[in-house]
Every structure is written in C-alpha cells, then in structure tokens.
C-alpha cells in the first residue's frame, strides 16, 4: 500500500516537470552561434553610432566608419564579423522544473559544431592546450545556473582571444579603497592598449572568490552596454569617463573612443578579501540569447 502511494506522488511530480529534448537545445545553440557571429549586438552597434559623431580625432572617426561598415557587410552577407569566431562560452539558465531528455552537454557541443560549420565560422579550438594539434569546433565552455521556473535560457558568447588574453585578476585587501579598484580596471585597459581591438567593452567582476570574480566579469559582458539596470551605475559611468581619457582610441591610434561601456557585476565576498576581475571585449562584442 505504502509503495503504491509513493509511486503516485512521484508520478504527480513528473507531470509538473516540463520536458525539453536535448535535440531542441542542440538546434537552438546552432542557430544562436550563427546569429551571434554575424549580427553585431544592437546595443553595441548603437554605442558605436553614439561615439562616431562625438569623436574629434579624424583617423579615429574613419576607423569607426570601417567598424560600422564591417557590421553592415557581415549582417547582409551572413559573414563572420571577425575571423576570430572565438571560443564560444555557453550560459545555460536551467529552470528547476525542467527535465532534459537526452544528453545536455553533448547537445550544446553538437549545436556549436553544427552552427559553426553551417555559418562558415572558424574552427579555433584545440583539444589539448599543451600538445596543440589540428583545431576543431568543440568542446566549448559551459556555465550552468539553476533558476526558478520551467524555462531554459541559452546564451552564446563567442570569445575572441585577442582580448581574452588581456584578462586580469587581482585579489585586493578588504581595506582597499574604491579608487584603487578603479585604477586597477583602468590599468587593465591601458595594458591591453592598442592590441585587443579597441574601442572595448569592459566586463568587471567584483566579489565572490577568484574564480567567481572571473565568471562575473565574463557574465557582465552579456548585459546591455550602458543599461540602466546596473547596481553600480555611477561607478560604471566614472570608469567610462576615465578610460576614455587614456587616448588609446580605435585601433590604438588615438581618440576619445577607447571604451563603449563598462559593465560591472558584483557579489558578496569574504571579510578577508576583495577579488576584482577584468575581462575586456573587443568592439565586436558578440552574443545571442533565446529562451526555450
């Protein structure tokens, strides 16, 4: 009798779960890869267009023209915005009331492979970081988060490595002043200088642990540039101003347009520490998202 009852309870739980097939995830990831790599994000393009008329350096203006024209051609001809189509980072926000039928990780990797082949995107992933061999399309980096509800949000962020190589992490003392944190962020941009395709979008992660701060810096890049949703809007605005005084400019050849925006994500941390990570994106900040 007891067993029958337990079974009935289990069944009712299963009924509440929404089922999403791994194949559906694969197809969505495939679509998002092509979209992210060929259609520049609206918010990024908008900021480029805001910067263009304000730029007083003639050469900088000309380069901004080329960047905007490049985005136009890429979209029209379904060409990659940049030949470095990156190492795709896939963020999965998994509703706790979902059941995935099939192998989720394989589906994501398969989706990337299909999307990259279909979109004529570059195979830039080597399977062993030390014994480097012929590049392929996967495996990608996957970040999962469990959230409420019965939906699955998928975001694909292709990370080019010209700018990824400029990532910085610093474990500050808990007594550090905000000024010191700001200086560190600006210094990271200065170090990247002309090499990582400015104008940049700067992702900053503050708090958590060392690894989590790096994750937050990456996640920050997903948020709309200069969105009003930020918890530290003032700090972001101050940093944008400061960075744009560095006179790095487009291609590093001078100008007022060194960064299009600074996005900061914060998280609680330990009494003994203050981790700060900076993840810089080139002007081709690409991502695409969809919810199943």
């Amino acid at each position: 009798m007891g067993t029958v009852l337990a079974l009935a309870v289990d069944l009712s739980l299963t009924e509440k779960m929404r089922e999403i097939s791994a194949n559906k995830v694969r197809d969505k990831v495939c679509e998002l890869c092509t979209q992210a790599n060929t259609v520049l994000r609206k918010d990024v393009l908008a900021q480029l267009k805001v910067a263009h008329p304000k730029e007083t350096n003639k050469r900088a203006k000309k380069i901004l023209d080329a960047i905007i024209e490049n985005a136009k051609i890429a979209k029209r001809e379904k060409l990659a915005i940049c030949q470095d189509t990156g190492l795709p980072v896939v963020f999965l926000e998994i509703g706790q009331d979902i059941k995935i039928s099939g192998d989720l990780k394989s589906a994501v990797n398969k989706g990337v492979e299909l999307g990259y082949k279909k979109g004529f995107l570059r195979n830039s992933i080597i399977s062993h970081p030390l014994f480097r061999d012929k590049p392929g399309y996967s495996p990608v980096v996957i970040h999962t988060d469990i959230v409420r509800g019965n939906k699955l949000k998928i975001t694909v962020l292709p990370c080019g490595f010209g700018c990824e190589n400029k990532t910085q992490l610093k474990m500050f003392n808990p007594t550090a002043r905000i000024d010191e944190v700001k200086r560190f962020v600006a210094e990271a941009v200065k170090l990247a200088g002309p090499d990582a395709c400015p104008p940049y979008v700067v992702g900053v992660g503050i708090g958590g642990t060392a690894d989590y701060a790096c994750f937050l810096a990456k996640k920050a890049l997903l948020r709309k540039v200069k969105s009003q949703k930020s918890k530290v809007k003032r700090l972001e605005a101050e940093l944008v101003k400061e960075i744009n005084k560095l006179n790095i400019g487009p291609m590093g050849l001078g100008g007022e347009t060194t960064c299009l925006g600074v996005n900061i994500e914060i998280y609680p941390t330990h009494i003994a520490g203050l981790p700060v990570a900076v993840n810089i994106s080139c002007h081709a900040l690409r991502s695409a998202a969809n919810t199943l």
Binding site: A66, I67, N70, A71, A74, I81, C82, G162
Partner: peptide
C-alpha cells in the same frame, strides 16, 4: 594589428623592412 616589441622595431630598422596595420576586427569588410 597592435604594437611590436622594441627588439622588433630595431630589427625592422636593421633590415629596412616595414610593418603595416590594417582595420582590426573588420574581417568582413
């Protein structure tokens, strides 16, 4: 795209070669 080291600047001078930049991040164009 981007900077070169001091040693490369010297080598370019020594061999009378040249280093060009082109539009960075504009592969479609």
């Amino acid at each position: 795209k981007g900077r070169r080291s001091k040693a490369i600047i010297q080598a370019i001078k020594k061999y009378k070669a040249i280093y060009f930049l082109t539009y960075a991040g504009c592969g479609a164009l």
